[in-house]
Simulated scan of single mutants.
Amino acid sequence: MKTKQRASERKPPWLRTFVPKSSPLVVTVCEGCGLYIIQDRENVWESWDYGLVEGDDLTVAIILGRPVTRVTWLPSVGHPLLRSTFGSRGIMPDGQYLARHMCHLARISVKPFKPPRRGRPSGKPWGWPKLSKQEIAEFKRIWDMPYSQLKHEKTPTNHGRPGR
């Protein structure tokens, strides 16, 4: 009977944000060394250390010959996507990466991942076009109109003329 490997470290709390349940990535414990790792189970299963590799840490990873994968944040779905770099190709100095997990070797980094800032501060409007009082009144009139009456209403076009 196979027993589940126990972690030899505490799980960083930011990993729950980085790898939510909806992600094809999985946070698990390495069976060999007992450290937390991120597994990409979408195609070929690959294991990555959870520390974010960038800047000087990226230089260290390249010098040590440790394979890395590029982290691309997908704000529309709220989780990252990992992209292969094929050696030194695809490595950009401003990119964010994860280093391949190699049992019993020290991690390149333990830096937490922070999702990119939103395009606008929370609580601020999206920058809708300014509407005239007439346009707002027309919207309210149509909004309050019963559906049975709305079916027979002619739709104005962008030029202010009735539609077909």
Rank of each mutant, 00 (worst) to 15 (best):
M1W: 03
M1V: 01
M1C: 01
R6A: 03
A7G: 06
A7M: 03
K11E: 03
K11F: 02
P12Y: 02
W14M: 00
L15W: 04
V19I: 08
P20G: 03
P20F: 00
S22R: 07
S22N: 06
S23I: 01
P24R: 04
V26D: 05
V26N: 06
V26G: 04
E31C: 01
G32A: 12
C33Y: 01
G34D: 00
G34C: 02
I37P: 02
Q39C: 08
D40E: 05
R41F: 01
R41G: 05
N43R: 12
V44K: 11
V44N: 09
W45F: 09
W45D: 12
E46Y: 08
S47Q: 09
W48N: 00
D49V: 03
D49G: 06
Y50H: 04
L52Q: 05
L52P: 03
L52F: 02
V53D: 07
E54A: 12
E54F: 12
G55H: 05
L58N: 01
L58M: 10
V60H: 13
I62Q: 15
G65F: 13
V68I: 09
R70D: 07
V71N: 06
W73Y: 07
L74M: 10
P75L: 05
V77P: 03
G78D: 03
G78A: 05
H79M: 02
P80M: 01
L82A: 01
S84K: 05
T85V: 00
G95Q: 02
G95M: 04
L98V: 07
A99F: 08
A99H: 06
R100Q: 14
H101Y: 01
C103E: 13
C103Q: 13
R107G: 11
S109W: 08
S109H: 10
S109C: 10
V110D: 14
K111C: 08
K114P: 07
P115A: 11
P115F: 08
R117W: 10
R120Y: 06
R120S: 07
G123K: 05
P125N: 11
P125T: 09
W126D: 12
W126Q: 14
G127V: 07
W128R: 15
L131W: 14
S132D: 11
Q134F: 14
I136L: 15
A137S: 15
A137M: 13
A137R: 15
K140M: 14
I142H: 15
W143F: 15
D144T: 15
M145L: 15
K151M: 05
H152N: 10
P156E: 09
G160F: 08
R161V: 13
